[in-house]
Design a protein around this nucleic acid. Structure first.
Lengths: 167, 167
DNA sequence: CCATAATAGTTGCATTTGCAACTAAATCAA
DNA sequence: TTGATTTAGTTGCAAATGCAACTATTATGG
């Protein structure tokens, strides 16, 4: 049936069709998806992807330091610093520096930030549903699992995302 | 354990965990994979990802114009132009302008380019195999098919890659 | 023919990105 | 103490990207 599996067979030797090369496919697909969803964030909320990631994790659990945000979003520290500065300026998040350790500062959503979060979430989920619409629930679960396994191999040192229970 | 789940319960429907959000997962995985393989190209062959893409398609079918390369690699024309210029300078590809239509020029691998191609291919395939090592052949085929379907949805206008029988 | 439009490819530029180097604060070791 | 180290976060900068505008050449319509 699936002739794609056959296709896999023949380049098992030492031929490479760029089209079938997994890193290329991931890159192209991820780019297309990112572009599309970033356009939505940008157009409707004037929020960049990095800003969105910060808002997303603060929406999940409020009151994180920059470093915690960086870990959860896999952004680097400068990226968090700049995106957070811009969000602070726009009064979307607030930063309250820690009295005990004055190097740290807690970031959290302001009321305005929460509004934005609440407005974006349904859009983001709708887009994800749209993407997954052609997949059965089993297939979606399979995809999820496969991506997780690839992530473990691609980056064993860092846990790209927490699939298994973390403490 | 996770006490955040309690807080989440009340609107369990429209909740988004960044970790489980498909666009995020694709982006993170693709980044990790790209970074890792780009390091290899760079370190061992002093070739960027874009340069590699050009070499890869010219290795598949020699004698393409910039525009054809751009279409097959999903790079934009300026990117092809610059990467090709650099490869030409390093004598990895040659450009021969078309007599009939002097706007066009055919790009093809030089002998040196072919050597590089032949040297990279096994490394690229080895990395792909490493990635796929934890997947059964059926799972790999499944992954292939799922990514293809997602690509159709993410970018229906453009055929991200030619999955349906060509040739 | 000539003016206009289309196509191939290049150049320029503003933004984004990734990384290194830096400041400030806290911790550790003597 | 106090000097060295580690940690949190910021700043600076070089390189990568993406897009628009441009040049050169070919095609088209009256």
């Amino acid at each position: 049936m699936k002739n794609s599996t056959d296709a896999k067979q023949d380049h098992a030797q030492d031929t490479l069709k760029l089209d079938g090369f997994l890193p290329y496919r991931l890159s192209v697909l991820s780019n297309a998806v990112s572009r599309k969803i970033a356009d939505m964030y940008e157009r409707e909320f004037d929020i960049s992807i990095w800003q969105w990631r910060i808002i997303a994790v603060l929406g999940e659990s409020d009151g994180l330091t920059s470093t915690e945000v960086a870990n959860r979003t896999l952004m680097d520290k400068p990226a968090v610093s700049r995106a957070a500065a811009s969000l602070t300026e726009r009064n979307i998040i607030s930063r309250k520096s820690d009295h005990a350790d004055r190097r740290k500062a807690d970031l959290r959503l302001t009321a305005k930030g929460r509004d934005i979060y609440d407005a974006i979430i349904p859009r983001a989920l709708a887009y994800e549903r749209e993407l997954l619409a052609s997949l059965s629930p089993e297939e979606a679960g399979m995809l999820h699992g496969l991506l997780t396994r690839l992530a473990h191999i691609a980056s064993p040192e860092r846990n790209l995302w927490s699939t298994q229970e973390e403490s």
